[in-house]
C-alpha cells in the first residue's frame, strides 16, 4: 500500500476556500481522508480525494451517478482498499487495522446499503435483531422491545413478520436502516436513503436522520443525488465529480457556488462541464460508424 500522504492541509479542493470548516470548537474530525486514490481495472474512480467529516453532524456527499460515492463509503468502511492515500475513522487508520480491530470499529459504524442487503432467509424482525444477537447479550424481552422500537421508528413494526422478499424496495431500505442503527453506532453511512421513497416516508426518513443526530449524538454520512432533500438536512456538503471533490462547505455555501460544474449538478442541467455520459466517442460518430470494434 502506498500510504505516504502526510496530513497536509488540502490543496486539491477546487474553487473552495471553505474546506470542511470544523464545526464544534476544533474537535478532531470523525473521518479524515487524505490523498485517496482508487482504481477499478483501468478506470480511475477516485483521484486524490481529501475530505474531513465532522462529528455529530450530517454530512452529505453528492455527485452524479457513477462518480464513486458508493465506492467512497466502501473505502471508509474498509471493504475496499485504496491504491494510495489514507482514511482515518475516529483516529484509526482503517486500512492498517487488523481484522479484530476493524470488526470492533465496524460495530460502531452502521451502513445502509444502496440495495438494502437484508438477509433473505430471516424475517424483518430477525434481520434487525441480527446485530444485537451477534454483539450484545441481551435478555429476550429487552431484545424484543429494542427491535420493535427500531422498527417503529422506520414505520415497519407491522411488517416485522414479513420476509425481505415480501417488502417493496422502499420498505426494504427502511428495514435496512432499522438494522443499521440497531447497535446505536457512532456513525451511520446512508447510501441513497431517499431513492424509492414516497413523499411521506421521505419526510419521515429526513426527520429520523435528524432525530438520530440530535438525540443520539450520531454522525451521519449521506450519499445522495436528491439535491433539495439532502441540502435541507445536511450540515456539510461535499460535491464530488470525476473522481475529485469539487467543493465542500455548508449547504448555503455550496448552493451559492458559481463554479459551473457545481451549478450544473445542483440545477440538474443535463450536460456541461460534468459529464452525464460515461466516457465515449461522440454519438454521431458512433452511429455513423459501420460497426464497433466491440462487435456491435
Amino acid at each position: 500500500m502506498g500510504n505516504g500522504v502526510p496530513d497536509s492541509p488540502t490543496t486539491v479542493t477546487a474553487s473552495s476556500d471553505a474546506q470542511a470548516p470544523a464545526p464544534t470548537g476544533g474537535t478532531e474530525p470523525l473521518v479524515r481522508i487524505r490523498g485517496l486514490r482508487f482504481t477499478r481495472g483501468d478506470t480511475l474512480v477516485l483521484d486524490g480525494v481529501d475530505m474531513d467529516i465532522p462529528r455529530g453532524a450530517v454530512t452529505a456527499i453528492m455527485g452524479p451517478s457513477g462518480t464513486g460515492k458508493t465506492t467512497l463509503l466502501k473505502l471508509i468502511s474498509g471493504q475496499l482498499r485504496p491504491q494510495a492515500g489514507s482514511i482515518e475513522v475516529d483516529g484509526l487508520d482503517v486500512h492498517r487495522l487488523g481484522r479484530q480491530e476493524l470488526y470492533r470499529l465496524r460495530t460502531r459504524m452502521g451502513m445502509l446499503f444502496q440495495s438494502g442487503a437484508l438477509l433473505g432467509d430471516l424475517t424483518v424482525f430477525e434481520n434487525v435483531a441480527f446485530p444485537l444477537r451477534e454483539h450484545a447479550r441481551l435478555p429476550k424481552s429487552l431484545l424484543r422491545r429494542l427491535v420493535l422500537m427500531k422498527l417503529e421508528a422506520v414505520g415497519l413494526r407491522g411488517a416485522a413478520h414479513l420476509m425481505p422478499a415480501q417488502l417493496s424496495g422502499g420498505m426494504a431500505r427502511r428495514a435496512a436502516l432499522a438494522r443499521a442503527i440497531a447497535l446505536d453506532p457512532m456513525m451511520v453511512m446512508y447510501d441513497e436513503p431517499f431513492t424509492g421513497q414516497d413523499p411521506i416516508s421521505m419526510g419521515v426518513l429526513v426527520s429520523l436522520v435528524h432525530q438520530l443526530n440530535d438525540a443520539g449524538g450520531l454522525s451521519s454520512i449521506i450519499v445522495s443525488h436528491d439535491v433539495p432533500e439532502t441540502l435541507s438536512i445536511a450540515d456539510h456538503v461535499h460535491v464530488i465529480a470525476n473522481g475529485r471533490v469539487l467543493c465542500s462547505g455548508t449547504p448555503e455555501h455550496v448552493s451559492a457556488q458559481s463554479d459551473p460544474r457545481v451549478r450544473q449538478f445542483l440545477d440538474g442541467a443535463p450536460d456541461g462541464p460534468v459529464h452525464f455520459h460515461y466516457p465515449s466517442a461522440p454519438l454521431a460518430e458512433e452511429l455513423l460508424a459501420a460497426g464497433s470494434r466491440r462487435g456491435w
Partner: peptide
C-alpha cells in the same frame, strides 16, 4: 446469491465474519 445481493458485505459491515457465520 448472498454475494450478489450484498448480504455477505452487509454481514461484514455488521462486524460478522461471513465465512465463519
Amino acid at each position: 446469491l448472498m454475494k450478489a445481493t450484498e448480504q455477505l458485505s452487509a454481514l461484514e459491515m455488521m462486524a460478522v465474519d461471513p465465512v465463519r457465520r
